[in-house]
């Protein structure tokens, strides 16, 4: 493993009984790199992303994060590794019984990453970063989907992660608010965050990605920089997928 690889996936394979959902997956992610996973639904993108912080277990092969192999990591070690990987979900998954501020400060305070005072200051600066300063005391239910997702991003960032995982962050949003969430992600990318993103937003992928992985039927069917994937590839499956979604 080279020094700069934050994540290394090697020969990852996952199956539910006889149904193979991921096979022969290998790739690396360098610091500050933006990797975008695209491909048809059911192709294994989300499952792969969820293997990276072991929300999905029971796979064979290796996922190495900052030199630690996740599959053999102890429960305690795994928790520490997860603290260093932020995750943003399609359905936001904010805690509905906590205010926006409490959503953001809960984990850092509970895990003693920050003192309560510091966590609150940090939360306010994160809210400013995602443009929701005035919503600190609101409950998630009173926010729009786009606002909720921006809070979810702030919540993940509150742990100062090394890597951010995005699982179709805009798929559950009304079209008119997709832009505000992508805007926050673009800013994050520009700030040098390492990001792995599952998305159907092709123009976003084209703008932000350093590397695009096209996944189909549980395999990485094609990969390369955006220019290659979106313009040069000779792979017929990639071409036919892109022709349908663009």
């Amino acid at each position: 493993m080279t020094e700069e690889n934050i994540i290394e996936v090697k020969n990852l394979k996952k199956a539910y009984a006889d149904n193979v959902v991921l096979e022969d997956i290998s790739f690396t992610v360098k610091k500050s790199e933006k990797v975008v996973l695209i491909g048809p639904s059911g192709g294994g993108k989300s499952t792969l992303l969820r293997c990276l912080n072991r929300l999905e277990g029971d796979y064979s092969g290796k996922v190495v994060f900052e030199g630690e192999e996740l599959n053999s990591a102890s429960k305690d070690k795994l928790r520490i590794l997860r603290q260093r990987m932020g995750m943003v979900f399609q359905q936001f998954n904010l805690f509905p019984n906590k205010t926006v501020l409490e959503n953001i400060t809960f984990a850092p305070v509970k895990l003693k990453v920050d003192t309560p005072q510091k966590a609150i200051e940090h939360a306010h600066s994160l809210l400013e970063q995602v443009g929701l300063s005035e919503k600190a005391d609101a409950y998630p239910q009173s926010l729009s989907g786009g606002q909720q997702q921006r809070v979810a991003i702030a919540r993940a960032l509150a742990m100062n992660p090394e890597v951010m995982l995005f699982d179709e962050p805009t798929s559950a949003l009304d079209p008119e608010v997709v832009g505000e969430v992508l805007g926050v992600m673009e800013k994050l990318a520009a700030d040098g965050m390492t990001m792995i993103i599952v998305t159907h937003e092709m123009s976003f992928a084209q703008n932000v990605a350093d590397k695009v992985l096209f996944m189909d039927k549980g395999r990485i069917a094609d990969s390369g920089n955006p220019k290659y994937i979106f313009e040069e590839t000779k792979n017929t499956r990639t071409q036919s997928f892109l022709s349908k979604v663009m």
Partner: peptide, 8 residues
């Protein structure tokens, strides 16, 4: 999953 992914 949200809790677990935060490292709780």
């Amino acid at each position: 999953e949200a809790g677990i992914s935060l490292g709780l």
